[in-house]
Computed example of a mutant assay.
Amino acid sequence: MFRPSPLAHRTAQLLPGVALCLAIGGVSLAIGAAAPVVGTALPAIALGVAVAAFRRPGARTGPGIAFSGKWLLQAAVVLLGAHLSLQDVLAVGAESLPVMLSTLTVCLVAAWGLGRALRIDGRLRTLIGVGTGVCGASAIAAVAPVIAATSGEIAYAVSTIFVFNIAAAVAFPLLGHALGLDAHAFGLLAGTAINDTSSVVAAATTFGAGALGFAVVVKLVRTLMIVPICVGLALRQPGSRRRELMRHPWRIVTLVPWFIVGFVVMTLANSAGLIAGPVRDTLLALSGILIAAALAGIGLSTDLGAIRRAGWRPLALGGVLSVLVTATAVGALALTGQLA
């Protein structure tokens, strides 16, 4: 009896959901072409949310939707590296570091103090704090096993973070235009103040040309902050988990997301002149398609019931932290003379 290979089986499992995300992404690209002021990012998310609200994705499309929301977005980020040089990345990283460290410090300190005042469990407030301060669900996923968070705490934290991801994708382009920011300053603001990579991409795409590449570089540098945070949290854990890290320090390397490595490789290839102009343009177009499909997948993954079940306290903590991080980033931009 013939049995399909694991790869063929996995492809067949993912195909329906990926096709749905690509279809919604295609509609959003058409909307963006017809109405450039609207862009493609917000229509992709909004259409995904609307479809999910009308009919929740089932077992047939669920795996492909989850794959699109994570892996297609990360692949798109890797392709964006083909348009930057290593010199650009190093310059942007150095410029964004003071703003990044100030927002991260404010967020983590406020998460500890306000979380205690709201009587939120220590593990949950840690997850919300690192999710808001670093890189959303990716940071939550990295930190959760370090602090032995329960599945319920992870679900609450991810649901809370998701609310403010969507809010940021809508609000930040408006805020950037209201403040009179150019693409460079907006990329710095979005990359340091929006918690999830998907929302950074959505906000920067909506804001206008030139902001996306800069915002993504800032965001990827910020994502690397999860490494020292995880190490610090591990060293504060009970003896067995702390000793495990000390015995196997090489495991720190596994905390670096693969797409950051891929982005750097693409940047190095472009810096060395290995990517021709037409190829670079093709990669940029493909990145736009993948971004639209990924954001559609994120919209389709919306679970309004989980958000309601999280309760008001985690939402209140996430909301206040998001406002504090944004205010700190804007303040840092003002101090460095980047506000109009």
Rank of each mutant, 00 (worst) to 15 (best):
A137E: 10
H184M: 08
A23H: 05
A329Y: 00
Q13E: 15
L80E: 03
W258I: 06
R313Y: 04
V89N: 08
C107M: 06
L339V: 15
D182A: 01
G122Q: 13
V253P: 06
I120L: 15
P6M: 11
S287M: 03
A234Q: 14
S198H: 06
T336C: 08
C107R: 01
I128G: 02
G191I: 08
T103D: 02
L284C: 07
R116A: 14
F186M: 11
T205R: 10
V51P: 05
M246Q: 14
A185W: 02
L114M: 12
L300E: 04
T223D: 11
V78N: 15
A211S: 14
S138N: 14
L290T: 06
W312V: 09
L86G: 12
C230F: 00
V89Q: 08
L22M: 10
W112V: 06
G176N: 01
L321T: 02
A148F: 00
L42I: 15
I166P: 00
A292T: 08
R236D: 11
A167Y: 02
R123F: 02
R116Y: 07
V146W: 01
P228M: 08
A310D: 12
P43I: 06
G25L: 09
T105M: 12
L290P: 03
A185K: 07
A23S: 11
V279K: 05
L80C: 12
T192M: 07
L175E: 02
C107E: 07
L80W: 05
K219P: 01
A202G: 06
H9C: 10
A139R: 08
G210H: 03
A334L: 12
T126A: 14
R308M: 10
G32W: 13
R10H: 13
I65T: 07
T326Q: 03
T192R: 07
T254R: 12
V323P: 03
A82Y: 03
P36Q: 12
A178W: 13
R60I: 12
L73W: 09
K70I: 13
A94R: 14
G58D: 15
G62Y: 03
P63D: 07
A316Q: 04
L84W: 05
G337Y: 09
A33I: 06
F67V: 06
L15P: 04
T223I: 09
L189W: 10
H248D: 13
L212D: 04
S28D: 13
A167E: 00
K219H: 05
A141M: 12
A137P: 10
A269L: 14
E95S: 14
T205I: 02
A19G: 01
H248T: 12
A269T: 02
F54Y: 13
S28F: 05
R60L: 15
S287Y: 01
T328Y: 00
W312P: 06
L14I: 01
G131S: 11
G305D: 15
A285Y: 09
G239P: 04
R236M: 14
A211W: 03
T223M: 05
L104W: 04
V163W: 04
V37E: 15
Q87P: 03
L255D: 01
A117D: 00
A30C: 14
T105I: 14
R116S: 13
A211Q: 07
A209C: 05
G232E: 10
P4N: 05
S28A: 15
S322N: 15
F164Y: 13
R309Y: 10
S198L: 01
R3S: 13
R55V: 05
S138G: 14
T254N: 10
